[in-house]
C-alpha cells in the first residue's frame, strides 16, 4: 500500500520537525476529564425533559402526542393512521417498538405493513412497494430533550428505510427514553465502552422533519425525507 505509507510517513516526518504550527498543536489544551455540554437544561426531572423535548420539536415543526398509557398510545396511532389515509406502512419489527399489541392495532385496520429487507433477491420489488407507503412507524433508541432529537441505531428488525422513506414518520418514545442531551446519551454509551455503537452499522440523530432552504433560503419541509415527524410519547 504505497500511498497509505507515504501519507502516514509524511505526516510523521512533518510532526518531528516541530515547526511553529506543530508547537501550536502541542500547546492544545489537554483532553478535559469532563466535556462542557453545548446546551443548557435546567429541569432534568422526567417531566422537565418531556416538556423540553416537546418544546424543541414543536419549534422545528415536528409534532408531539402525549399519551398516559399504552392503550391511549395505540388509539392515538390509529387516529394518525386514519388521518393520513394509510393503506400501507413501513415499520420496524414490532418487537423492536416498545408498545405491546401495536401490530394487532395496525393490521386490524387493514393496513399492509412492510418491514423492508433489501438484502435478498426481491430487493427491487420491496423498494418499489415500500415507496408507495404513506407512513412509517418506528421506535427510537433514545431521545435528546435539549435539541428535540430522536436517536436511532440499526440492528436486526431496525432498518434505516422506515425512518426516512415515507412522507410521514411516526416515532414511538417511552418517557424513560428521553435523556437531557446528546452528550448524556454518549455518556451512557461510554459507560459500556461505546458497545451500542460498535454493535451497529449506523446511528442517526434525527432532529425534526426534512428541510431545505436552498431556494432563496425559504424554509421548505419534506424535500427528500419525511415532511412530518409525529412523536407519540407514552408517559410513565
Amino acid at each position: 500500500m504505497p500511498s497509505r505509507d507515504a501519507i502516514l510517513n509524511k505526516l510523521r516526518d512533518a510532526r518531528r520537525t516541530a515547526k511553529a504550527d506543530m508547537r501550536l498543536l502541542e500547546s492544545a489544551a489537554p483532553r478535559p476529564a469532563a466535556f462542557l455540554p453545548v446546551t443548557q437544561i435546567d429541569d432534568t426531572s422526567p417531566d422537565g425533559l418531556l416538556t423540553r423535548f416537546t418544546e424543541e420539536l414543536i419549534r422545528l415543526k415536528g409534532e408531539v402526542f402525549l399519551c398516559d398509557h399504552d392503550q391511549a398510545a395505540r388509539d392515538q396511532i390509529a387516529a394518525l393512521l386514519t388521518e393520513h389515509g394509510a393503506t400501507r406502512a413501513l415499520a420496524w419489527d414490532f418487537a423492536c417498538i416498545p408498545l405491546p399489541a401495536l401490530a394487532e392495532t395496525v393490521r386490524g385496520m387493514g393496513i399492509d405493513v412492510i418491514h423492508p429487507q433489501t438484502h435478498d433477491e426481491f430487493r427491487a420489488e420491496t423498494l418499489s412497494t415500500a415507496e408507495t407507503a404513506q407512513v412509517s412507524i418506528t421506535g427510537v433508541d433514545a431521545a435528546a430533550a435539549a435539541t428535540g432529537t430522536l436517536i436511532v441505531t440499526t440492528a436486526p428488525g431496525k432498518g434505516r428505510i422506515p425512518t426516512v422513506l415515507a412522507p410521514v414518520h411516526i416515532a414511538i418514545v417511552r418517557q424513560r427514553q428521553i435523556v437531557p442531551r446528546i452528550e448524556d446519551w454518549v455518556g451512557m454509551l461510554r459507560a459500556d465502552s461505546m458497545a451500542a455503537i460498535r454493535a451497529s452499522a449506523n446511528v442517526c440523530f434525527i432532529t425534526g422533519p426534512s428541510r431545505t432552504g436552498d431556494i432563496e433560503m425559504e424554509l421548505i419541509l419534506g424535500v427528500h425525507g419525511p415532511g412530518r415527524v409525529q412523536v407519540v410519547i407514552i408517559r410513565e
Binding site: T118, H119, T154, A155, K158, G159, R160, A201, N202
Partner: peptide
C-alpha cells in the same frame, strides 16, 4: 456509518 450492514440488519 461504521462499515457495511451487520448480519441480520434488514437494510443498508
Amino acid at each position: 456509518f461504521s462499515g457495511p450492514a451487520r448480519a441480520g440488519e434488514p437494510d443498508g
